[in-house]
């Protein structure tokens, strides 16, 4: 059994277990850390960096993704400090430049008060968040989709780009931020924190005691 421990997110003490995922622990405690590529049902990859936080350890502060951060006793995490918000807005701006038409990214930008995009728009059909790949491997248990190529050439695809490797289960589709539209539950959120995608079905009333609202 993992040890029960206490961590502090935005000065709020949260009971969790040693090694637990900090983003998940915060969300469960009702602290909305905006996130995008994170899916509770699969292993986090830390691809989008939207869930960026500051973590203080041994008197030093560093910025890292909350979804791939393992909780340790007494850990101090800041999810909404000025430097974090600045970094997160910049990250969302970069994402929005990749796919400006995406309603999900627009909703995310709106919630983070990103109004201006300083980067040239690219109108890609993929932001490389990897949700589809993770869903294919861990939800559908197919392992058909993957990220192919390197650098600017990176793209998702099937082996040999052949449809026959896909069982058409649609688990990938259903999780792609460029396919999703912000859900009808938008009104349930206070609107101060992060994305539509941060809604966790395990805690539908996630916004109720969020520190931000």
């Amino acid at each position: 059994m993992p040890e029960p421990i206490t961590i502090f997110v935005d000065d709020i003490a949260i009971e969790t277990t040693e090694g637990a995922n900090v983003l998940d622990a915060a969300l469960r405690a009702g602290i909305c850390i905006p996130n995008l590529c994170y899916l509770p049902e699969v292993t986090p990859t830390g691809a989008c960096r939207v869930c960026i936080v500051e973590v203080e350890r041994h008197g030093r502060t560093k910025m890292t993704a909350a979804c791939t951060l393992e909780a340790r006793e007494g850990m101090i995490v800041r999810a909404h400090s000025e430097p974090v918000l600045r970094a997160r807005r910049n990250i969302v701006e970069l994402l929005l430049a990749e796919a400006p038409e995406s309603p999900v990214l627009q909703a995310l930008a709106e919630r983070l008060s990103v109004t201006d995009v300083r980067y040239s728009r690219r109108d890609r059909d993929c932001i490389l968040c990897g949700r589809c790949v993770a869903a294919c491997a861990e939800v559908a248990k197919q392992g058909s989709l993957g990220m192919i190529g390197r650098g600017a050439n990176r793209h998702k695809g099937l082996p040999f780009y052949k449809e026959e490797y896909c069982t058409q289960c649609n688990e990938c589709h259903d999780r792609c931020p460029l396919e999703l539209s912000p859900s009808g539950r938008r009104g349930d959120h206070c609107g101060v924190c992060g994305s539509e995608l941060s809604m966790n079905d395990a805690i539908p009333d996630i916004c109720e005691d969020c520190v931000l609202s």
């Binding site: 491997a137 392992g143 058909s144 990220m147 082996p159």
Partner: peptide, 12 residues
């Protein structure tokens, strides 16, 4: 190893 992983490596 899933086919995609072998393909990815060979492609990379």
């Amino acid at each position: 190893v899933p086919v995609i992983e072998v393909f990815r490596l060979a492609n990379f």
